[in-house]
Amino acid sequence: MFDILMFLFESYFHAGRYPNSDKLSRKLSAAGFEDEDIHLALTWLSGLEQLNKANYPSTINESSGRFYADLEIKRMSFEVRRFLTFWEQNKIITPVEREMILDRAVALNRENLPLDKIKLITLMVLWNQRQDLDPLIVEDLLTPADSSCLH
């Protein structure tokens, strides 16, 4: 499924939006993706599209920290939680966007998601919120977590 998300970003980022589910399903099938993966990705994207900042209480933005539930701890490593905290503390993401990222990560129903996958989820959440994405943020989210510094 993550290959499909990367394909969507690479193919449709400059257009600002990916096609509706029916058209997207046909395009993904034509690109060689498996039907089961396409179905999983479309279901996940449907949940992503339903996320709306207005559905979260405004008090989230006033909180000083976040305690993770046991399920969230199982789904995301310490490294992932540290990444989200760092980005939030440095005002790269808002607390509401953090919650959206957590929602989509937990929706995958996978344990111990690596940082690279969370970065892709973060990219998709920010893109879905129709934000102007700073090229440096996009580069950071697309750079593998274990890569050495580029020069």
Rank of each mutant, 00 (worst) to 15 (best):
Glu34Arg: 11
Gly47Phe: 07
Pro144Glu: 15
Pro19Ala: 01
Arg98Gly: 07
Ser29Glu: 15
Asn109Ser: 09
Ala54Leu: 09
His151Cys: 13
Phe67Met: 07
Glu99Gln: 14
Ser11Gly: 04
His14Gly: 04
Ala31Asn: 05
Met76Asp: 00
Ser11Ile: 02
Leu113Asn: 03
Ser148Trp: 12
Lys23Pro: 04
Thr85His: 10
Val138Ala: 01
Leu120Cys: 04
His39Trp: 08
Val80Arg: 00
Leu40Phe: 12
His151Tyr: 15
Ala105Gln: 06
Ser147Val: 06
Glu10Val: 03
Ala41Asp: 00
Tyr68Pro: 00
Asp116Lys: 01
Pro57Thr: 02
Met100Cys: 09
Ala145Arg: 09
Leu123Phe: 02
Tyr68Ile: 01
Val138His: 00
Tyr68Ser: 04
Asp103His: 14
Gly32Val: 03
Glu79Lys: 07
Gly16Asp: 10
Tyr56Asn: 05
Ile118Tyr: 05
Thr85Ile: 06
Val96Lys: 14
Ala54His: 10
Ser25Phe: 07
Val80Met: 02
Val106His: 04
Met76Glu: 01
Asp132Met: 11
Val96Ala: 08
Gln131Pro: 01
Phe83Leu: 13
Ser64His: 13
Ile4Lys: 00
Phe13Ser: 05
Gln129Val: 03
Leu115Thr: 10
Arg130Glu: 15
Ala69Leu: 15
Gly32Ser: 04
Leu71Pro: 01
Phe7Val: 02
Leu42Gly: 02
Phe67Ala: 04
Gln50Lys: 12
Asp116Ala: 00
Ser11Cys: 08
Leu71Val: 10
Ala54Gly: 02
Glu99Ile: 04
Ile101Lys: 05
Leu51Phe: 00
Asn55Ala: 08
Phe7Ile: 01
Asp70Arg: 11
Tyr68Leu: 01
Leu113Tyr: 06
Gly47Gln: 13
Glu36Pro: 00
Leu136Lys: 09
Tyr56Phe: 14
Asn112Pro: 02
Leu136Arg: 07
Glu88Gln: 14
Ser58Gly: 11
Tyr12Lys: 03
Leu123Lys: 01
Ile60Asn: 14
Ser148Met: 09
Met100Tyr: 13
Thr85Cys: 06
Glu10Gly: 03
Leu48Thr: 00
Ser64Trp: 14
Val106Ser: 03
Glu111Lys: 12
Ala107Asn: 13
Asp103Leu: 11
Arg110Thr: 05
Asp103Pro: 07
Lys117Leu: 14
Ala54Trp: 12
Leu115His: 07
Arg17Leu: 08
Leu24Trp: 05
Ala30Ile: 02
Ile38Phe: 01
Asn90Thr: 15
Ile92Phe: 08
Asn55Ile: 03
Asp22Gly: 05
Gln89Ser: 13
Asp70Phe: 10
Phe78Gln: 14
Leu28Thr: 00
Leu115Gln: 12
Ile121Met: 06
Arg98Met: 09
Ile73Asp: 05
Arg104Lys: 13
